[in-house]
Amino acid sequence: MEQKDIFIEVKGLCFTYNDDAGNNSPDASPALCNLDLKVARGEYVSILGHNGSGKSTLAKLLSMILIPTSGEIYIDGHLVSSPDISDDEIYEVRKKIGMVFQNPDNQLVATVVEEDVAFGPENLGIEREEMKKRITEALEMVGMTEYRRHAPHKLSGGQKQRVAIAGIIAMLPDCIIFDESTAMLDPLGRRDVIEIMERLNKERGITVLNITHYMDEAARANRVVVINDGEKVLDGTPKEVFSHVDELHSMGLEAPQGKELIHALNKCGIKVSDDALSEEECVEAIYSALIGD
């Protein structure tokens, strides 16, 4: 196999939140502990974990909002985790990694959709003609073209989130981290955001990290990394990861229902092949188990 182009590399990453006085209190449990992770350029990875598992801390470290307590982070080959990193270097990293957060309301800055999408490119000093082109493209990508002149506060949650994504796309990042970006959306809004995520990955080769606690979302990625109590516990294809149903349960997580069903059947002595994930595959596996009997 050829050497993959590693975009994000995390080595022995630890992070402990400070107490109120700003000290690293010795007994505070670390939010992240000795985490290793490599993400290749163009990958589509889900980071799965329950609330408070440390997955959002990872996002904040990767976008350089937090500085690691120990360990190293390399982005596109550059060490970015040193405490004395310059503002210019941080700026360079942020050009490459875009962040989409949970609450769509709290990431829109302008009173008109297109001006909000322009915010990132403006900060990057992009020329006006180029900027207009990027806004048009970005809004098209997220299906919000007709709302170009609308006020963001009148849009639905899902639409706001799509505008927020357009604002990131217009900066042409190599990688986008979605930090629980679907948690506050209704099912239709969630579906739209997920579809956009996947199109960005497939059509533009953007590296996508989707941090989530929704199993069905995580299952759609090419790779799932499960974080529990600040540690990486599972890492593999969705099929592999969601075969560990008991382990997921013990971490307060679940597997997609098809997987749960197959697991339950196997437990009570009905042998069903575990090599299934999608509904179709699960139906197939159960069907052959039942007919095979």
Binding site: I65, E114, F119, P121, N123, I168, M171
Partner: peptide, 18 residues
């Protein structure tokens, strides 16, 4: 935080849409 992540750093080298 969101503004910082979108590379905002005041009006250093900033262009404007309008």
């Amino acid at each position: 935080v969101a503004m910082e992540c979108r590379c905002y750093r005041g009006d250093i080298n900033r262009t404007k849409l309008v």
